[in-house]
Design a protein around this nucleic acid. Sequence first.
DNA 1: AGGGAGGTGAAAAAAATCTTTCAGAATTTT
DNA 2: AAAATTCTGAAAGATTTTTTTCACCTCCCT
Lengths: 290, 290
Amino acid sequence: MSSSDLTISDRIQRKLDELTRAERQLAHSILENYPASGLGPLTALAKGANVSAPTVARMVQKLGYKGYPEFQAELREELKAKAKNPIAKHDAWAEGAPSGHMLNRFTDAVIENIRQTLGQIDPDQFDTACQMVAEPRSRVYIVGGRITHTLAEYLFLHMQVIRPEVVHIQSTSNGWPHYLLDVKEGDVFVIFDLRRYENNTLKLAEMAHKKGAKLILFTDQWRSPVDRLTDITFSGRIVVPSAWDSNVTSLLLIESMISTVQNLCWGDTKDRAEALEDMFDQTMLFRKFT
Amino acid sequence: MSSSDLTISDRIQRKLDELTRAERQLAHSILENYPASGLGPLTALAKGANVSAPTVARMVQKLGYKGYPEFQAELREELKAKAKNPIAKHDAWAEGAPSGHMLNRFTDAVIENIRQTLGQIDPDQFDTACQMVAEPRSRVYIVGGRITHTLAEYLFLHMQVIRPEVVHIQSTSNGWPHYLLDVKEGDVFVIFDLRRYENNTLKLAEMAHKKGAKLILFTDQWRSPVDRLTDITFSGRIVVPSAWDSNVTSLLLIESMISTVQNLCWGDTKDRAEALEDMFDQTMLFRKFT
DNA sequence: AGGGAGGTGAAAAAAATCTTTCAGAATTTT
DNA sequence: AAAATTCTGAAAGATTTTTTTCACCTCCCT
């Protein structure tokens, strides 16, 4: 809202006394299904209220707008603000920092990214992808690029514990063609390709596809060209106030997938985790958690 | 909704694959402030999405409407229907998934983690840490453990572009004692140690500390034993409905730090600046403007 | 009842919005 | 590497929407 913090609905009700008969009739019609009716064409609104078009134009001016379009624009603003509101109630995430502080701006962006991304994900596809990754008969190849190989490795490190036959390939390394020799039909590729999209990753995906492997892609909202080849694609939002893109939403999806796959593999995982734990204990890599 | 029970939002998402690049860009713009932006004039929508007016006209036709006005009319119908129905969903992140679905439970937990973590961070400490990492006279060592070395590498890959003299050490590798020979007073260590805390990381931190290096630690809410030695500690919440811990908050902090450090280092080395500019272009301009 | 002030809507004028066309650009296929 | 296909946006044309004008109507007051 530009000028005041009043909604248009409030404004109308406040001015109700100063309005003429036809205008009051119109006002009630607007409030009847607010704000939808006010967002349509002026003539439709007039007709719906059984008044003439000029009456609408005049009332809108009485309310303080220059014309009907301006009135509509404010209605849309109001709607926009309302849609964002339930989530964006936090004006500052890091208390004690000005709201313009990088931490707050960045967190705002990330939360919005998460909200948008999750809103567009098809839960069935997510479940299907998890089942594919959990399938014990398939080998799972995890592929990342220059930056994203860190995400790939993160997934790999967990999957390695959860199930056997997991391989991590880095598309930027020159050793990857080697791995493709072993790929058999039904194997699963989990591919990370966020902009800038990498040629090597695309080539690798194509070859895997040709071999009959199933492809799961993690990409951004603009979608890597690999998208054409995949069985399932997850596109996350990555925009943050930075010269770089954010991979937070990707990590969120990865971790959710890890958790879901682990539940699917539970029986196997238990044994494997225990075995691994023993190994680590013996090598004294970890301190015991007290 | 007149014909089917699908919302326009659903329809758009369903058709997303059949759309062209510009159209997809537009689609995302519509979903961004849904439904407000779709209720404005066609030209404004086109401008907001950085596409031309005809693209909008074509896409709505692809979606099955006779023209833009018809599309808007349906949007308004949808809005009207939603207003009548007092309690719409909106408590679920992934619409269409039951609120008990892993995606929703996980996202809830992550958002809560972010909220809690950011609430406890001291912005001044954050700024100080960023300045330390940006300091050109210090060498920066980035250290991670078995899982967390992926986070460390993520930070490293970005820092590497932003400033010289950055080193990535993996505490689980047996080569790390080598690196410590070169450490001089005033060098900076960024250490990742989330549970389960690793003995090697602690040892490495102790030796670095003894050499007069400054320590920045990323850990969890229970805090790694390294905490005693550090100048600055960031503790993130990591609890999620999973057998594993979440590193999303850590990544959020890392990315914020990257962005802040980059701002501080702006215009350091000429080559570096040019390289950055180049990358910036490639990152930001995903399509050409004419 | 007659005069006047303000209210109202039909119709025309003005403005904007939407659609179509077409040529150039980008992409894919051969 | 060249050809064909598809995509895209500028500009013009078509349509709709909004505003203005103006005559008529109603209601109130003397």
